[in-house]
Simulated scan of single mutants.
Amino acid sequence: MRNDVGEATYRLDWQEVRHDWPAWIVLLGSFIAGVLLYPSLPEQVPIHWNIAGQVDGYGSRAAGAFMLPALNLGIYCLMLFLPLVDPNRANYARFLGFYRGFRVLMTLFLAVLYAITLLAVEGLQVDVGLVVTLGLSLLFLYLGNSLGRVRHNYFVGIKTPWTLANEEVWRRTHRLGGRLFVLVAVLPWIAWPFSRTAAFIVLIGGLVLVSAATVVYSAVLYHRIAGR
Results as ranks from 00 to 15, higher is better:
15 Q>N: 13
15 Q>T: 06
15 Q>E: 12
15 Q>I: 09
17 V>K: 02
17 V>C: 12
17 V>I: 13
18 R>Y: 06
18 R>E: 08
20 D>C: 08
20 D>G: 07
21 W>P: 07
21 W>K: 11
22 P>W: 00
22 P>F: 05
23 A>F: 03
23 A>D: 03
23 A>E: 04
23 A>Q: 02
24 W>E: 04
24 W>L: 05
27 L>I: 12
27 L>F: 03
27 L>P: 03
28 L>M: 10
28 L>Y: 02
29 G>D: 00
29 G>E: 04
29 G>Q: 08
30 S>A: 13
30 S>D: 10
30 S>C: 11
31 F>V: 02
32 I>G: 09
32 I>K: 11
32 I>L: 15
33 A>D: 06
34 G>S: 12
34 G>R: 01
35 V>Y: 14
35 V>G: 09
35 V>R: 08
38 Y>V: 05
38 Y>H: 15
39 P>G: 12
39 P>S: 14
40 S>K: 12
42 P>W: 02
43 E>T: 15
43 E>W: 11
44 Q>D: 11
46 P>M: 07
46 P>T: 04
48 H>A: 04
48 H>R: 10
48 H>S: 04
48 H>L: 01
50 N>W: 03
50 N>K: 08
50 N>R: 00
51 I>E: 12
52 A>T: 12
52 A>F: 10
53 G>A: 07
54 Q>W: 11
54 Q>L: 15
54 Q>S: 14
54 Q>A: 15
54 Q>M: 14
56 D>V: 05
56 D>E: 08
57 G>H: 06
59 G>T: 05
60 S>N: 06
60 S>M: 08
61 R>S: 11
62 A>R: 07
62 A>Q: 02
63 A>I: 12
63 A>Q: 15
64 G>M: 09
64 G>I: 05
65 A>F: 04
65 A>H: 01
66 F>Q: 08
67 M>W: 09
68 L>G: 01
68 L>K: 00
69 P>D: 01
70 A>Q: 06
71 L>V: 00
72 N>R: 06
72 N>F: 00
73 L>V: 12
73 L>G: 10
74 G>M: 14
75 I>G: 12
76 Y>S: 04
76 Y>H: 10
77 C>A: 15
78 L>M: 15
78 L>N: 10
78 L>I: 13
78 L>W: 11
79 M>I: 05
79 M>F: 15
79 M>A: 07
81 F>Y: 14
81 F>G: 09
81 F>P: 11
82 L>Y: 04
83 P>C: 04
83 P>H: 09
84 L>C: 11
84 L>I: 05
84 L>M: 14
85 V>P: 04
85 V>I: 15
86 D>C: 02
86 D>H: 07
87 P>G: 11
87 P>F: 03
87 P>S: 06
87 P>M: 05
87 P>I: 01
88 N>A: 14
89 R>D: 11
89 R>N: 11
90 A>C: 09
90 A>Q: 12
92 Y>R: 03
92 Y>W: 06
92 Y>V: 01
93 A>H: 03
94 R>W: 01
94 R>N: 10
94 R>K: 15
94 R>Y: 02
95 F>Y: 10
96 L>D: 10
97 G>N: 14
97 G>V: 10
98 F>L: 13
98 F>A: 08
99 Y>G: 03
99 Y>N: 02
99 Y>D: 00
100 R>Q: 06
